[in-house]
Simulated assay, not measured.
Amino acid sequence: MANQLFQQAREAVAYANSVASGSANGDQQEAVMKAKNALSSAFANCTDAERAQLREFQQTIETL
């Protein structure tokens, strides 16, 4: 079974990135905050490989 929190974090980061680039409508600040919360939740319950990807997602969010 796939890690649901990890998937939610990945989707939240993708959405925040889309809002920041203008390809999706929404509040960028709110999207970034939701992505950060999702990343935080996912870190507690994931594998080492997922953690490495979450760190990459975190770097993406920090640049927005």
Rank of each mutant, 00 (worst) to 15 (best):
M1L: 12
M1K: 12
A2D: 14
N3D: 09
N3S: 13
N3R: 13
Q4K: 15
Q4D: 15
L5W: 08
L5E: 06
L5C: 13
L5Q: 15
F6M: 14
F6N: 04
F6Y: 09
Q7R: 14
Q8P: 10
A9R: 01
R10G: 01
R10I: 03
R10Q: 01
E11P: 00
E11C: 06
E11Y: 05
E11F: 12
A12L: 06
V13N: 07
V13Q: 06
V13K: 05
V13A: 01
V13F: 00
A14W: 06
A14I: 03
A14E: 01
Y15H: 06
Y15C: 00
A16S: 02
N17L: 01
S18Q: 05
V19C: 00
V19L: 02
A20P: 00
S21H: 00
S23F: 12
S23C: 11
A24M: 05
N25K: 12
G26P: 03
D27P: 03
D27V: 00
Q28G: 07
Q29C: 08
E30L: 13
A31C: 02
V32A: 04
V32M: 03
V32I: 05
M33G: 07
K34Y: 12
A35G: 03
A35E: 02
K36P: 05
N37V: 12
N37P: 09
A38L: 09
A38T: 08
L39V: 01
L39S: 05
S40Y: 12
S40R: 15
S41T: 08
S41E: 14
S41C: 12
A42D: 09
A42T: 00
A42R: 08
F43M: 15
A44V: 10
N45A: 15
N45R: 13
N45E: 11
T47N: 05
T47M: 08
D48N: 12
D48F: 10
A49T: 07
E50T: 02
E50K: 02
E50N: 04
E50D: 10
A52M: 11
A52S: 15
A52W: 08
Q53G: 06
Q53D: 14
L54D: 03
L54Y: 05
L54Q: 01
R55P: 08
R55Y: 14
E56G: 12
E56C: 13
F57P: 02
Q58K: 11
Q59S: 09
Q59A: 09
Q59T: 04
T60H: 05
I61K: 03
I61W: 01
E62Y: 06
L64Q: 01
L64F: 00
